[in-house]
């Protein structure tokens, strides 16, 4: 009995101690909320920032016949540690129009791809979002189904369709619509078609998850107040789905800028995108520092619009809060 009481008192004291300690913990450590957000931040730090810093560091280096094939930035001779930064790679990028042209054509291709994906993807996402719930999952499944096949295999399938002896040309020939095969493969058009095909799901999915939350009563109210359907779309649906449009466009645009495989397999030798330039620097020239510099400039080009959009979003939120 005594021992039980003792142990009870012990445990009470222990609880009190823990309470005191947790109070101390609470003061010293960030709140649970920030602990939770620390996980994604830690992830980004580890898998984005650290590799990025590696690349950044290589971009200020020089080629060397060694393994790895670049000079270390920091070198030590006796007690002297010297840091040598080479800005030549960046000067080269800005001095040779090749890089500018390649960046421009990549941005252009990615921009057109994003626009087409938006125009094609929006009605698809809208239809799925408005479909009865039972059908919705099936339709979503159909959008995601191609991911079950390897990306490379799907590009090869398009080669089989667009080739001079491919399905499309054979069909058109046998229908008598054309006299001789159309040159579809290895053109800008073929690159555009396959890129839109490959990136379309990345537009549809965020748009869908946004549109599915759209309150149907708002549309009814708009109609009651005398809006025609297209007016309702422009003045209610579209503004409310703005975040979905932005998210989808980013998901398409950003990877499309660096696309390498599609132009390599179905493109023309004339068109040069930045992904190919990167490949040439890394593999043909074995010049890791130059490849790293090309990457850094590309990331900078991509981050600028993201930061801009993010800032605008924040301002809009602040305005909304003030009202």
């Amino acid at each position: 009995m005594m021992s039980r009481l003792l142990s009870l008192r012990d445990s009470r004291e222990a609880t009190a101690r823990t309470a005191r300690r947790s109070a101390w913990w609470q003061r010293a450590l960030p709140r649970g909320q920030s602990l939770v957000t620390a996980i994604p931040y830690g992830w980004l730090l580890l898998f984005f920032l650290v590799p990025f810093l590696f690349v950044l560091q290589i971009s200020f280096s020089d080629v060397e016949i060694a393994s790895p094939p670049y000079r270390a930035l920091l070198s030590r001779a006796e007690d002297v540690v010297s840091l040598v930064l080479n800005f030549g790679n960046y000067r080269y990028i800005f001095g040779d129009p090749l890089y500018f042209d390649a960046y421009l054509s990549s941005l252009y291709m990615a921009g057109v791809t994003t626009l087409i994906c938006l125009v094609v993807g929006y009605p698809i996402a809208y239809t799925i979002a408005r479909a009865p719930e039972a059908k919705r999952n099936t339709l979503l499944m159909l959008v995601m189904l191609p991911f079950w096949t390897s990306f490379l295999v799907r590009v090869y399938a398009w080669m089989g369709i667009l080739d001079n002896e491919g399905l499309l040309n054979q069909a058109l020939l046998s229908l008598g619509l054309i006299g001789e095969p159309l040159q579809l493969m290895h053109t800008q058009l073929s690159v555009q078609i396959v890129m839109v095909y490959a990136y379309l799901p990345f537009m549809i999915l965020p748009l869908f998850s946004n549109l599915v939350k759209l309150d149907g009563r708002l549309l009814e109210a708009s109609a009651d107040l005398g809006c025609r359907p297209w007016q309702t779309f422009l003045r209610v649906t579209l503004p409310l789905s703005k975040n979905g449009v932005i998210a989808g466009s980013m998901l398409v645009f950003i990877p499309a800028v660096g696309e390498f495989v599609i132009p390599e397999l179905v493109g023309t030798p004339e068109s040069l995108m930045i992904g190919k330039v990167l490949w040439m620097e890394f593999f043909d020239n074995n010049n890791w520092p130059m490849a790293a510099s090309v990457t850094i400039v590309m990331v900078a080009l991509l981050i600028a619009p993201i930061v801009y959009l993010h800032k605008r979003e924040e301002k809009a939120l602040a305005r909304a809060a003030q009202r």
């Binding site: 040779d96 090749l98 040439m280």
Partner: peptide
């Protein structure tokens, strides 16, 4: 030499892209 290799790649790009 690295600079020759780089020149070759650059020139080849010119050939291909006309």
């Amino acid at each position: 030499e690295a600079k020759t290799q780089r020149l070759q790649t650059r020139l080849w790009t010119e050939v291909k892209t006309r």
